[in-house]
Design a protein around this nucleic acid. Structure first.
Length: 1094
RNA sequence: AGUCUCGUAGCUCAGCUGGUUAGAGCGCUACACUGAUAAUGUAGAGGCCGGCGGUUCAAGUCCGCCCGAGACUACCA
């Protein structure tokens, strides 16, 4: 017996199947039963178990799961080693938050060892929840042997990779400008800067300063800044190569002194009103915003300004090298400011870069230890060398002062005739999310990977990667690679992979340690030379690794560079480190490199996708993945990003518990392409449940209801397809087309297409056509070949669907598969996930059949529509329909499906109309596609002409099969191909049409037809009674019907039919039916009827 | 600010290389069906295809600009 169920309960199916998978170790088997030689490599991007899983994780993991399952079913071995991302700032921050400490406390109120111990504990905090969601959503990944980034083995591989890069000269220490929070005394990561609310609008005092040109009288460059406090650190000005500059004579608005200034021509309008010959100094006032000018003296290109020198604006500190020159910078624009950019290499990333490129010095002083430092200290205060402002904070850090230092700087410039203009300026400025104080961009020492050296190669290799969607690979990722900057590896943090570089105090000698063995060797050497007793720490993390002192070639002690490496390096190292390559598993590694497939959110484009790619290219000159799917975000149903703060985050546990994993997965995949953002709405899950799973479940229930009665166990040999009825062959053909299409979609990483095709098949083809038309074959008559054919056919549809849908909805698919296979034992596999995808069977494909069934569906639909408009119920038989013949095969095609159509629409005969004598009213349209190319601009005239043709013209065209357009002296011959001729109407008939198909319905009712209609009504009513009385499908009955002239012909002529349909042993008419039910029949006829079991 | 995606019916989405009545499902309304029935069928209402301009005989589709949403990147002075 097939299992029968009253209602569909997806969550219960989840439970049942999960228990089955566990008990039978189906996941393990699905891997082990596939040959090692034919493997499909998948890399799991490690999540951090430090946060709770969200619904977006279900999305991302569904995509991963689909293709892994698909390739398993395609016969490949798909190992999926899980992993955990365990290092990094978010973990540190959550520990700090819980302890109520800041970074400064670490090493003071809490030891680094203790702090890291807490990080290690915290990092797996939600592991249970993750394991739980992984299981419940049906994501198959190996969580028994995951890689964990904090283990010594993992760190060792990272070290080995760093050593590879180090040996290739790709690691260097540099000085860069990074976000820095003076209030918190720490550098900030871009992650922190991107916290919500980090950028806030603040009002700054902006200044346009005058930089006096060397060797000229009263000539100045104008440069704008929103940070006047950086002006004492100015050492250069940048102009745009292709920008046009002008030299303008005017007066200083504050001092009224005559000046000549240089600025971008495009920016004139922002500062000047118009030329005023004979302008007097007193006409230029401080209150004027744009001011008049005397004349434009000269025009020049930015390129011609390159190399010009100017006098230092605020000479507190002298540069140690060339400075105060004009440079070319590609970042210079004329959107605001003056088109000349003030460069302070210590406080701007662009500034730093362009200054370095030109060999321009930065302004630095020595700190108490003799180390160079910028003119602002780490607390955000001017150093003593900036005498006028020494000790003043450069931004608002809560200090009490009369005026911000920016204002005092502006005043000083004004007094010295160095200020052209000062204004308040409102702009977004980043703030430290913890202290809420402004961030400074500050020079810090960092280690870098010279990624830019390999960017062409990375770009080239990227072209070989199949990106889904392609635009992310070409656009976002490609562009990123084109403009690649060096990778800042350093993190001044505690919980992470330590940088394995040791240096002498003077920094002249350094070594990179690429393995624990090398470390041991180096330690032994150092112990010998330095007389120490160090050993390799048991834990490679800080602080233990910091204690290790090595020795240089020349015998000097070397100390570890205190930085950690960027956690993204950890994740990018995962292909190697998950196997502890090259220290172990060499063969395993090479079998699993590169990945065939990875998938993550599109936000990982410059995260994990990049680090994987970069490390593989730099260390191996290879790609690390061949196919990548980057999915979009999961938004709430209003398109708003989900967040805890807004309370619109969807709890995946609740969702899955309520709707089941399959409906959730199916909804997410079918609703939108994975790379489009998904507006997550549970109403969509309900719809999928009803429309797809519900329909399929109903189909299964229908099958089991009758298969159990008939004891169909698929024991009979397959009935050859060519011996099966038309409708069976049709659905098998459609099923075969579906298999092919789904396989193509899966292979092409297009899961949405696959699901939509399956939905169409289940709803439109299987349920609403095949089953609807075949119903009687299941419940009527003998267990004969036709019936067996129906069972075999429906069975094949169901089991094939189970396979096709298995990657997306693994639970329901397995449930369906097992319910079927349990009885028939046709398949050797206990689970659908161990089965192979159905091989497309060309012998099932029959395009001609699919076309004529399409005709049948559309003709039936048209007839039903006609009945509807004439209010003639379907039970009332009608005599005939007429079909205008479309082409030579049309009659043959329709005849093949004639019986289906007639049965479906309850009509006796089909007549074909082929004459062109005028019975049919036709319409003609030009074929724009074929004619447009030839006619070009005449197309419109032709369109008008054709529209004006009469029926006679159309007949003429049909008879001759050609037409010649004469247009402006040119002849354009056209054939029938160049026209679309449609039957529009058959005068005197009820006509409906759908594209090329036209149907006419004869609505004449004869007494015979009416009697037959009445007979069917009676059958229907009696069936209802049977049903309400809960009679068995096989119970015989006796029927007595109240006599009435309207029912007499029905009973007389069709009594046998009525009895047969209703299993009535007797049917009689009586003038009085005392204990009967009251029947409501057409024409408001009410009669009594008595139905009894016999 | 830059780069990239997206914008089609009330909602979620199709619309292939440009071709002339712009589609589906859901929702809504009405009717029908009642041996799959908390299903199903038929019909109806509902669209300046985000806006403007361009290319073309022809634009939802190609190009440019703008507006709106989102992501990523970013101290543009």
């Amino acid at each position: 017996m097939y299992r029968e169920f009253k209602t569909l309960n997806l969550p219960q199916i989840d439970q049942e199947i999960l228990a089955f998978w566990d008990a039978q170790k189906i996941f393990d088997r699905s891997v082990e039963e596939r040959p090692v030689e034919n493997s499909y490599v998948f890399y799991e991007g490690p999540p951090s178990a430090n946060g709770m899983p969200g619904i977006h994780h279900v999305m991302a993991r569904t995509i991963k799961d689909i293709f892994c399952r698909y390739h398993t079913m395609a016969g490949q071995r798909v190992e999926r080693k899980g992993g955990w991302d365990t290092h990094g700032l978010p973990i540190e921050l959550s520990v700090e938050k819980e302890l109520g400490i800041t970074r400064d406390d670490i090493g003071k109120t809490i030891s680094v060892a203790e702090y890291n111990r807490l990080c290690r504990e915290t990092v797996m905090r939600y592991k249970d929840r993750w394991d739980d969601i992984t299981r419940k959503m049906g994501y198959w990944v190996d969580l028994q042997n995951p890689y964990i980034t904090y283990t010594n083995d993992y760190i060792e591989t990272c070290w080995w990779l760093l050593k590879q890069l180090f040996d290739k000269g790709l690691l260097y220490k540099g000085y860069t400008i990074q976000p820095f929070s003076p209030a918190a005394g720490t550098g900030l990561s871009s992650h922190e800067l991107n916290q919500p609310g980090a950028y806030r609008d603040i009002t700054d005092t902006s200044a346009v300063a005058q930089f006096r040109i060397k060797g000229a009288e009263n000539e100045y460059f104008l440069a704008w800044t929103t940070t006047p406090w950086t002006l004492p650190s100015n050492t250069a000005l940048a102009v745009g190569k292709h920008i046009t500059y002008v030299k303008v004579r005017t007066f200083n608005r504050y001092t009224q002194e005559p000046i000549t200034v240089i600025l971008a021509k495009d920016r004139m309008g922002a500062y000047f009103t118009g030329q005023t010959p004979g302008l007097k100094p007193e006409e230029v006032k401080a209150g004027n915003k744009p001011i008049p000018y005397l004349e434009i003296v000269e025009e020049m290109s930015g390129a011609s300004l390159e190399g010009m020198e100017y006098e230092q604006l605020m000479p507190y500190v002298q540069p140690d090298g060339p400075a105060f020159r004009v440079l070319l910078g590609d970042f210079v624009s004329t959107e605001d400011g003056t088109g000349i950019v003030h460069i302070a290499p210590t406080f701007g990333a662009d500034d730093f870069r362009v200054a370095k490129q030109y060999g321009i010095a930065a302004l630095l002083v020595k700190d108490e230890n003799g180390h160079p430092m910028p003119l602002v200290d780490r607390q955000g205060r001017f150093v003593k060398d900036v005498t006028d402002f020494a000790g003043r904070y450069v931004k608002d850090y809560g200090q009490e002062e009369e005026r911000p230092v920016d204002v005092d700087i502006v005043i000083k410039l004004k007094e010295e005739n160095k200020l052209f203009l000062s204004e308040k300026y409102l702009h977004p400025y980043p703030h430290c999310w913890r202290t809420e104080k402004p961030v400074l961009y500050y020079p810090l020492d960092s280690w870098f990977i010279r990624a830019s050296a390999l960017k062409e190669r990375m770009f080239e290799l990227n072209l070989t990667i199949n990106w889904k969607p392609a635009s992310t690979g070409e656009g976002r990722f490609g562009k990123w690679l084109e403009n690649l900057q060096d990778w800042n590896l350093s993190r001044s943090r505690f919980w992470g992979t330590p940088l394995p570089i040791w240096r002498t105090k003077d920094g002249l000698q350094e070594t990179c340690i690429g393995s624990v063995a090398l470390l041991k060797e180096a330690i032994e050497k150092a112990n010998a030379v330095l007389g120490k007793t160090q050993t390799v720490p048991e834990d490679l993390h800080r602080p233990f690794i910091d204690d290790v002192v090595l020795v240089s070639e020349s015998g000097e002690p070397m100390y570890r560079e205190p930085d950690l490496i960027d956690v993204w390096f950890d994740s990018g190292a995962m292909p190697y480190a998950q196997w502890h390559y090259p220290f172990e598993n060499q063969e395993k590694f090479w079998q699993n490199f590169p990945a065939d497939f990875i998938a993550e959110g599109v936000d990982q484009t410059r995260g994990w996708f990049y680090t994987l790619h970069a490390i593989a290219v730099m260390a191996f000159d290879r790609v690390s993945f061949k196919n990548v799917v980057s999915n979009g975000l999961v938004l709430d149903k209003n398109g708003v990003k989900m967040s805890k703060r807004l309370g619109n985050a969807v709890d995946p546990f609740e969702t899955i518990a309520k709707y089941g994993a399959d409906a959730t997965r199916w909804y997410m995949i079918s609703n939108a392409q994975p790379w489009d953002n998904l507006k997550f709405d549970v109403a969509g899950i309900e719809e999928v449940t009803r429309r797809f799973f519900g329909t399929l479940f109903n189909t299964y229930s229908f099958f089991t209801l009758y298969a159990n009665i008939d004891k169909f166990r698929y024991a009979e040999a397959d009935i050859p397809v060519e011996k099966r009825p038309e409708i069976d062959r049709w659905v098998l053909s459609a099923l075969n087309s579906l298999s092919e299409a789904c396989e193509g979609s899966y292979a092409d990483y297009e899961p949405t297409e696959a699901t939509r095709k399956m939905m169409y098949f289940v709803d439109e083809q299987l349920s609403n056509w095949y089953v609807r038309l075949s119903r009687r074959r299941f419940w009527r008559g003998e267990y004969n070949e036709d019936k067996i054919s129906a069972y075999q056919t429906l069975y094949e549809c169901l089991i094939t669907l189970a396979k096709l849908m298995a990657p997306v909805s693994p639970f329901f698919a397995d449930w369906l598969y097992r319910n079927l296979n349990e009885v028939t034992g046709k398949e050797p596999h206990p689970s659908v996930h161990l089965a192979l995808m159905p091989a497309p069977d060309a012998s099932h494909a029959d395009p001609g059949l699919e076309q004529r069934m399409d005709y049948a569906q559309r003709i039936a639909s048209l007839v039903l529509s006609l009945r509807k408009t004439r209010k003639i119920r379907v039970r009332q038989p009608l005599q005939k329909i007429m079909l205008p013949v479309l082409d030579t095969q049309f009659v043959d095609q329709v005849n093949e499906v004639k019986d289906l159509i007639l049965a479906e629409v309850n009509v006796k005969v089909i007549e074909y109309v082929t004459d062109t004598s005028g019975l049919l009213h036709k319409r003609v349209k030009p074929n724009f596609k074929t004619l447009g190319k030839r006619l070009g601009k005449h197309m419109k005239a032709v369109s008008d002409l054709v529209a004006s043709w009469t029926q006679a013209d159309i007949q003429q065209l049909e008879r001759s099969g050609k037409y010649v357009f004469e247009l402006e002296g040119e002849s354009f011959p056209a054939t029938l191909e160049d026209f679309e001729i449609l039957t529009e109407d058959i005068p005197g008939w009820q006509v409906a049409s759908d594209n090329e198909l036209t149907v006419a319905l004869d609505v004449t009712l004869t007494p015979e037809l009416e009697a037959e209609g009445m007979a069917r009504e009676l059958v229907n009513r009696i069936q209802n009674i049977r049903k309400t009385r809960d009679f068995n499908v096989t119970d015989q009955i006796a029927v007595v019907l109240e006599n009435h002239p309207e029912v007499v012909p029905a009973v007389e002529w069709h009594g046998g039919y009525i009895r047969q349909e209703t299993l009535a042993a007797s049917l009689s008419l009586a003038d009085n039916v005392p204990e009967g039910d009251l029947l409501e029949l057409p024409n408001e006829l009410q009669l009594h009827i008595q139905v009894k079991l016999v």
